[in-house]
Amino acid sequence: MNMLLRISLLILLLTTANFGQIGNSEFKLQVSATVVDYLEMITLADIDVGTVIPSDDMLRLDPRTDQGAGLIKIVGRVNASIQISYSGQIEMVNLASSTSMTVSYSVSGNESSEQSLSELFTTNPETVTLNSNGEYYLWIGCAFSLLDLVPGQYDGDFVVEVDYN
C-alpha cells in the first residue's frame, strides 16, 4: 500500500469516527437543592400574672401547675434531640415610671401538651427530644418580689433559643 493510499484511509477512519460523535450526543444536567433544618417556635399563650398588689410577698407562677404560665410549642424534625436555652432572669421596665423589677423565670417541658406532666428544667441549656410528631411543649413560669412595686404596666422580653444537637 503506498503512502497516498494509507493517508487516504486514515482520513476516512478519522472522518467516520468524528461523524459518529456529532450525530448522537449525551449531555448532563445537575439538579440541586439545599435543605436547611426546620425548627419553629409558636407562642400559644403569653405569661399572665393577673393583677397584683404591692406587698412583702413574692409572686411565684409555677410552670407545671399555674394556668397563667406561658406556653410555647416547638416544631421540628421527628424524634430529634434539641437544646433549649432561655433567659433565667431579666429586668422588666415600668412603661410609665421607667422603674424596673427583676423577674426570674422557670421553665418546664414535655413531649405532650399536658402541663401537669411537664418536668421542671434544672439546667440551662436543657437537652430534650421532640416527639414522634416533631413537637415539644414549654411552659414558662416566673417569680418576682411585690415589695415596693410601682403600679403600672411592665415590659420585657423573655428569650428562648432552640437548636438541634
Partner: peptide, 28 residues
C-alpha cells in the same frame, strides 16, 4: 475513497443552566 465520505449533519448542545431548587426547609 474520500468522495464516499459525505455523511451527517452536526448536532451540538450546550447547557445554559442547571436546575436548582435553591434553599428549602426540611419538612417543607
Amino acid at each position: 475513497i474520500q468522495f464516499s465520505v459525505h455523511v451527517a449533519s452536526s448536532l451540538n448542545a450546550t447547557k445554559d443552566q442547571d436546575m436548582n431548587f435553591d434553599t428549602v426547609l426540611a419538612g417543607n
